[in-house]
Amino acid sequence: MPPTRRTSAPAASTLTGIAEMASRDAQGVPADLLDGYLEELDGISTTRKSFRPEQLRVRREVGARAAERGISLHGVIDLHLSATWLAWRSLSGVRRATGADAVRAAGEAVFKAADAAVTAIAEGYEEAQRWAVRREESFRREFVDDLLDGRNLGQLAERAERFGLRLAGSTVVAAVRSAQPLVDGGEVARAVETSLNLRPDSRDVLVTTKEGLLVCVAPDTMTDVPDEFVRQVAAALGPDTSWRVGLGRAHPGPGGVVRSFEQARYALDIAERLGLPGRLHKAVDLLVYRVLLRDRAALEDLVSVVLQPLRGARGGAEPLMETLAAYFANGQVAAACARQLHLGVRTVTYRLQRVADLTGYSVDDPAQALSLHVAVLGAKLLDWPASAEDTP
C-alpha cells in the first residue's frame, strides 16, 4: 500500500525560515513586511483563488509602511518575489499536486496572486509618497506664510532648519513682481529654484512664492545671491515679460525676514508708482520716498498748492506733469528731456514756461525747482490728479 501524502500547511517555523531567506536575498529588506503573505500564498496554491480585497488592502498597507520607513519600492517588491519562489516547493497546493496539470494550475494561481500583490504594494507605496509630498508642501507653505507674515516667531528658527535656513544671523529678501502672478510649482519658480540649488551653499537660500510674488530669502553674507536671483529670473521670464525686483535691507533674526520682505514689497510699489527705470530696486535707495509719505497730509497739501493750477491747462495737467517728471529725471537738461519724450526742445521749454505761468514756480529758481520736483514725486506717489478726481 503506497504511503499517504502529507497535505498539511507548512509549519510556522518553515515559513519563518523562508521569510528570513527572502530578506537576505532582497539585500536585507525587513522580513516583517511579508506580514502574512506566505500563509495567504499557501492557501491560494490550494484553492486556486486570488487574493481577497481585504488581503490586497494589507498589501497596500505594506507598501505604504515601506515608503514611510524609507525602504525602496524595488526592495519591497524584491522581498515578495523572492519569498514567492523560495516558498514554491513548500506550498501545500504544490506538494499535493499529482501531475503536471495540477502543478501548472497551482503555479498559475500563485504567480497571478504574486502579480496582484506586487501591484497592490506599488499602489500603496506611491499613495504614501504622494501624501508625504503633499504633507511636506503643506508644512513648507505654513512655514513660509509664518516667516513672511511674522507669525510664531519663537518657533521659526527651529522650523527653519528643516528647510535649510539658519535665521540666527541677518537675512535679506528679494521679491519679484511679474505681469503674471508667480506661483509655487510654476515653471518660473521651478527654474529659478533649480538654478540656485546648484550653488554649493544653496542650503541657506529659500526660494518660494507669496501673494503672486517670487521671493528669495538669503543670508546677508551671501552678497552675490540677489544679483544671481535677478539673473535667473531674467532667464526664466525672458526679455518680453514685464517684471521688477524689490530688495529689502538686511535685518537680524526671524523677525528680520518679515521686515526685509515688507521693504522689498515697498520698493516694488514705489518703483511702479514712479515708473523708475531698471529691474532691481533697492529699499535702501528709496528711503527718501518713505520720508515723503510719512507725513501724507503735508505731502497732499504740497501737491495741491503747487500743482493744482495745472489742472486748468488746455489738455489737462498730464502733459505738463509728464514734462516736469522727465525734465527732473534727466538732470534738468531740456534736450535730454525732449529726446525721452520724443518732442522738440522748443516744446519742452514752452511747457516749462507754461508751468511757471500757471503755478508761479519756475524750474530756473533752485528753491522753486525743488518744490516742483518734490510735488511731482508726491503726485506720482499719491496718484494725483486721479485721486483728486475721486475725492468728493
Rank of each mutant, 00 (worst) to 15 (best):
R159H: 02
A160P: 04
E161T: 15
F163P: 06
L165K: 01
R166T: 12
A168C: 04
S170V: 03
S170M: 10
V172K: 12
A175H: 01
S178D: 09
S178Q: 03
S178Y: 02
Q180S: 14
Q180I: 08
P181W: 04
P181I: 10
L182P: 06
G186I: 07
V188L: 09
A189R: 07
A189L: 07
R190M: 15
R190V: 15
R190W: 10
T194V: 10
S195N: 11
L196M: 12
P200E: 14
V205Y: 04
V207R: 04
T208Q: 01
T208C: 13
T209Q: 03
L214S: 06
V215Y: 03
A218K: 02
A218W: 00
P219N: 08
T223W: 09
T223S: 14
T223L: 12
V225P: 00
D227N: 09
E228K: 08
V230S: 04
Q232Y: 07
V233C: 15
G238Q: 03
D240W: 06
S242H: 14
W243R: 10
R244M: 11
L247G: 02
R249P: 03
R249S: 15
A250D: 05
A250K: 08
H251Y: 15
P254C: 07
P254W: 05
G255S: 14
V257Q: 01
V258Y: 04
V258N: 07
R259Y: 02
S260W: 00
S260E: 02
F261H: 13
R265T: 12
L268N: 10
D269C: 07
D269G: 13
A271R: 05
R273H: 12
